[in-house]
Design a protein around this nucleic acid. Structure first.
Lengths: 205, 205
DNA sequence: AATTTCATGTAATTCGTTACATGATTCC
DNA sequence: GGAATCATGTAACGAATTACATGAAATT
C-alpha cells in the first residue's frame, strides 16, 4: 500500500508547502530552501523524483494550465507544471505531522514540522514540542553521563567540544520551554471562552 | 587509485581513533559514539564494512593475537580482531584532516576534525577553525538576506524558527572566535622562543 | 543454566547527492 | 543574438541505516 519511495523529510516538506498553495517544482525548491535554509538544502535531483512519486501515489495532482477551448496551439508552451494536494495528500500530511517514528526521523523532521506550525492543530503542536524536548533531555542525560565517566581522561579540545555541544542543547531546551509555556497559555486562554479546544484524544496506545 | 568505498565521516573517525591506539571493532564503535555523541551515532552495519574497506586499501592491518609457537589449539579463540594504522593510513588521515572538500563534507567533518585536534598540527587547526567560521558567516549572510526579503510575509512560527537558528549560528561563530584567538595567542607565544613553528606553506592554489 | 554483554559480520533498503542533458524565457 | 535564469528531468553513485544472523565470554 504505502509507496516504496517518497518518505523522508522531503516528502513532508513538499506536502506542507503544497498545502499552503499550489506550486510548480522550481518554485517549490526555492521556497523549500528559504524555509529550511537553517538545516539543509534540497536539489532538483531529489525534488522531481519525489514529486513523481507523490503523483504516482495519488497524494498530489498536476494542474497543467490548458484551457482546451481558448487556444489549442498555445499548448506548445507546456512549461510550469503546477502541483496541488489531493484529499489523500492532506490526510498523509496530517499523518506525517502527527505520527511518531524512529528518533532519527523525529530529529530530522522537527524543523520541518515546526515550519508548518501555523497550519497545525494546537494539541499536535504541543505534542511535537514536548516530544522534541524529551528527546533532547534524554540526550543531555546520556552526554552528561558519558562526560562524567571519562572525566579528566579527555584532552582539552574534546572537553571544549563536549561543553559547547552541551550548552547548545541546553539552550534549545530553554527555547522549547518558553515555546511550550506560550502554547499552554494560549490554549488556556482559548479554553476559558471556547470549549472543545481540547483534542479528541486518540486511542491510548 | 582511491577506493570506491570508505569515504565519509566514518573513515576519518576510524582512522583518527586508530591513530590514538589500536583497537578492535566493538571498542571502536563505543569510543566513536562517546566521542561524537553530540552529532551522530554509527552502527556496526556501517563500521565493519568500513574496516573491511580500509583493510583492502592497506590503510589498516589486523593484529590477530596469535602466537604461533605457544598454542596452536588456542586459535579457536579467534575473537577480537585488533586493527592498527599503517604508514599509508597515517598519510591518509593527515590528508583527510587537512584537505578541503565540498562544503557539505566540511560541515559534517568539522566535529570529527575538532575531536582530533590534539593530534593535529597547530597551523592545520587554525585553518580548520577559520574555514568553519567563514562557512558559517557565509551562511549567516544568506539567511539574513533571505529573512530580510520575506520580512513580514512570514508567520510567527517561521520567524521564531529562523531567529533561533540565527542565534545558534551566531553563538557558534563567537565560540570559534574565542578558540581562534586562543590558538593565535598560543602560536605567538611559541614563536617568540621557538622558531620554525610556522607551517611550511603548501602550494598556494 | 540462563541471561546479558561482547564481538563480528551480511543483505537489502533508504534518502539523498552530483553530474549530466535539455529546452524555454527574459534581460541586455 | 548572447547570457542569465527559469524549468524539468535522468543515471549513477554515496554514505549510512535497519534488520538479520551468528557465536563466544562473563555475570548472576
Amino acid at each position: 500500500m504505502a509507496g516504496k519511495r517518497g518518505s523522508g523529510v522531503l516528502e513532508l516538506a513538499v506536502l506542507g508547502l503544497l498545502n499552503e498553495s499550489p506550486m510548480h517544482g522550481y518554485e517549490l525548491r526555492k521556497r523549500l530552501n528559504a524555509l529550511l535554509g537553517m538545516f539543509r538544502a534540497f536539489s532538483y535531483g531529489s525534488l522531481y523524483p519525489c514529486l513523481k512519486q507523490l503523483l504516482a501515489n495519488g497524494l498530489i495532482v498536476e494542474d497543467r494550465p490548458e484551457e482546451p477551448n481558448v487556444a489549442i496551439a498555445l499548448q506548445s508552451r507546456r512549461s510550469k507544471i503546477v502541483y496541488r494536494l489531493t484529499a489523500d495528500g492532506k490526510e498523509r500530511l496530517q499523518h506525517l505531522l502527527t505520527e511518531a517514528g524512529p528518533a532519527t526521523w523525529e530529529d530530522e523532521g522537527f524543523g520541518v514540522r515546526f515550519a508548518f506550525f501555523s497550519h497545525t492543530r494546537a494539541d499536535v503542536r504541543l505534542r511535537i514540542l514536548e516530544g522534541r524536548r524529551s528527546r533532547l533531555e534524554e540526550r543531555l542525560e546520556r552526554l552528561r553521563a558519558a562526560l562524567a565517566r571519562t572525566r579528566e581522561r579527555v584532552d582539552h579540545y574534546t572537553l571544549e567540544l563536549h561543553n559547547h555541544g552541551l550548552e547548545s542543547v541546553e539552550r534549545e531546551v530553554r527555547w522549547l520551554n518558553e515555546l511550550i509555556g506560550r502554547e499552554r497559555a494560549a490554549q488556556e486562554n482559548a479554553s476559558t471562552s471556547d470549549k472543545n479546544q481540547d483534542a479528541p484524544r486518540r486511542d491510548g496506545r
